[in-house]
């Protein structure tokens, strides 16, 4: 095959341009963690198909403190090689399924680098909260 310097330069430039937007994160952890997560159904996580392709929920675990407040932790991962921005919001429900409103029920913006995973934490506003829902939004400013 003949070497074409113009084609080679164009390919190198394209690769450099594509790579410039990507900052991926490498993560390492112990093979057998000492903790045991109480993983729950991901039915409680609401997201749209477009965002779900980019930011994926790896797991959701729930714990209860001595004060009786539910604590939820969701691990999300950016499956793409590009920086992503998204927003999330927790909704809390009592044992009868009624929404518990409060000043902490707001959308929070997070950024995640390419291939990075991070944890989103939510704490129930009061001990009466027995269930939750996590909403994920795309196109957060």
């Amino acid at each position: 095959m003949n070497f074409n310097p113009v084609r080679a330069l164009a390919t190198a430039t394209l690769m450099a341009l594509l790579g410039a937007g990507c900052h991926t994160v490498n993560t390492t952890e112990t093979a057998q963690p000492v903790f045991q997560r109480n993983l729950v159904s991901e039915k409680r996580v609401i997201t749209d198909a477009s965002l779900a392709r980019k930011v994926q929920i790896l797991g959701v675990n729930v714990s209860d403190g001595p004060g009786g407040f539910l604590k939820v932790q969701a691990e999300v991962q950016n499956t793409t090689g590009r920086y992503q921005r998204f927003a999330y919001k927790w909704e809390w429900f009592d044992k009868d399924g009624n929404l518990i409103e409060g000043p902490a029920a707001v959308s929070i913006i997070r950024q995640v680098e390419g291939k990075e995973s991070l944890f989103i934490n939510g704490v129930a506003p009061n001990p009466a909260a027995r269930d939750f829902r996590l909403k994920l939004y795309e196109n957060a400013r």
């Binding site: 403190g65 001595p66 004060g67 407040f69 939510g122 704490v123 506003p125």
Partner: peptide, 12 residues
């Protein structure tokens, strides 16, 4: 709010 509840109030 989350920090105050999780780290102090939820400790009982």
């Amino acid at each position: 709010i989350n920090s105050l509840i999780a780290k102090h109030i939820n400790s009982g």
